[in-house]
C-alpha cells in the first residue's frame, strides 16, 4: 500500500470510467435526445467488443476470424458493426413505444449474448477470445495503464465534442422537438421515424466503440463480460443519476457510479473478518440503497438538462 499503488488504482478506475462514460454518452443520444428506451446496451457493447477483438486478434484454428489488423481498424469496424446491426433492430423495434422497446431490446441483447456463448466458430464460444493486442501494451505496467487512460479519455473527449456540436446543430434541436412532442414535429414536416433511427444508430455506434475500447484494455473477452446487470443496467443508472439529456451529466454519472461501485468494496471490507464473505452481499445491498437515496433526493439527476420542459412518459 503506497501512493504509487493508489495511483495505479486511480488510473485503472479512470479507464473503466472512461469506457462507461462512452456507453453513457451513447445511451444519452438514444434516451436523452431521442427518448428511446434502449435496454439492450449490452448487445451493442458486445458487438463492438467482439468485432474489434476478431479483427485484431491472432487467428486460431476453430474460429473463422482473427485477422491481426491494427487496433484502429478494429475500433472503426466496431463502430460500423454496431451501427450496422442497430439499423435493422431499430427499423423493427422503434415502432414500439417506451417499455415495449425496452423489452424488445433486452430480448435482442440476450439473443446476441446466447449466440456469442454458443457459436464457437464465430466468437470462440464460452472460452472467448484471448491474445487481443493493447495499444501501448508493451510499455511497463504503470506507463501502459497511463497511456491507455489517455487514449480512452481522448475518445471520450472526441465523442463528447462531436455530440455537443451535433446537439447544437439543427439536428439536435429537431431531436428534442421530436422527443417533446412527436405529433407537432411530424406536423411541421419532420421525418420522425428517420430521425429516431438516426439517433438509435448513432448511439449504438458509440456503444460499439466503448466495447472496442474495453476489449483492448482487458486483452481478452468472454461472454461473461456482457452481463446485462454490469453493462445495460449500470449504464442506465449512470445516465439517470448524472442527468439524462446532458452529456456532461452522462459522464459525471459514470464517474460517480463507478467510484461508488468500486470503492464500496473498500467500505464493506472493514466489517469484521468473520462476515467477510457476507460483506460482499452487503456491498450489493449498499449499492442498491445508494441508488434509492439518490432517486429520493436528486431524481432529476445531478446535472439536469438545460431545458425547462419536463418529459412525461
Amino acid at each position: 500500500m503506497d501512493t504509487l499503488g493508489l495511483l495505479n488504482y486511480a488510473i485503472f478506475m479512470g479507464v473503466l470510467i472512461g469506457i462507461y462514460a462512452l456507453l453513457s454518452l451513447g445511451l444519452n443520444v438514444q434516451w436523452g435526445y431521442a427518448g428511446l428506451f434502449n435496454a439492450g446496451v449490452a448487445g451493442f457493447f458486445a458487438v463492438g467488443a467482439y468485432l474489434s477483438a476478431l479483427f485484431t486478434a491472432p487467428p486460431v484454428p476453430d474460429r473463422i476470424m482473427g485477422w491481426e489488423l491494427p487496433t484502429g481498424v478494429g475500433w472503426f469496424a466496431a463502430m460500423a458493426a454496431a451501427a450496422l446491426i442497430a439499423w435493422p433492430i431499430g427499423k423493427v423495434t422503434l415502432r414500439f413505444r417506451s417499455d415495449y422497446l425496452a423489452i424488445a431490446t433486452i430480448g435482442v441483447a440476450e439473443i446476441i449474448r446466447l449466440v456469442l456463448r454458443t457459436e464457437d466458430l464465430l466468437s470462440g464460444g464460452v472460452r472467448g477470445i484471448t491474445g487481443i493486442p493493447r495499444p501501448f501494451g508493451d510499455l511497463p505496467y504503470e506507463w501502459s495503464q497511463l497511456a491507455y487512460l489517455g487514449l480512452t479519455w481522448g475518445m471520450v473527449v472526441v465523442i463528447y465534442w462531436a455530440l455537443e456540436r451535433q446537439l447544437a446543430a439543427p439536428w439536435g434541436r429537431m431531436m428534442r422537438a421530436i422527443r417533446e412532442n412527436e405529433l407537432a414535429a411530424a406536423a411541421m414536416g419532420k421525418n420522425v421515424e428517420a430521425r429516431r433511427l438516426e439517433a438509435f444508430i448513432l448511439g449504438a455506434a458509440i456503444m460499439g466503440l466503448a466495447g472496442a475500447v474495453y476489449v483492448h484494455f482487458m486483452r481478452a473477452i468472454t461472454p461473461e463480460a456482457i452481463d446485462p446487470m454490469m453493462v445495460t443496467f449500470l449504464v442506465w443508472i449512470m445516465l439517470i443519476l448524472g442527468g439524462s439529456g446532458n452529456n456532461r451529466g452522462a459522464i459525471l454519472g459514470a464517474v460517480i457510479i463507478w467510484v461508488i461501485w468500486s470503492s464500496s468494496e473498500l467500505l464493506t471490507d472493514r466489517l469484521p473478518a468473520e462476515i467477510a464473505t457476507q460483506a460482499k452481499y452487503i456491498r450489493v445491498f449498499v449499492i442498491g440503497l445508494m441508488l434509492q437515496l439518490v432517486l429520493r433526493w436528486r431524481p432529476e439527476g445531478l446535472l439536469p438538462e438545460g431545458t425547462h420542459v419536463r418529459r412525461s412518459s
Partner: peptide, 28 residues
C-alpha cells in the same frame, strides 16, 4: 411511491435497486 409523479424511468431504476437489495438480504 415518492417517484409517482416523476418520469417512470426513475421507478424502473428504483426497482433495479430494490432487486439488488432483496437478493442481498436473501443471501445474507
Amino acid at each position: 411511491r415518492h417517484l409517482e409523479t416523476r418520469p417512470k424511468i426513475l421507478t424502473v431504476m428504483a426497482s433495479l435497486g430494490v432487486a439488488l437489495m432483496l437478493r442481498s438480504v436473501v443471501q445474507v
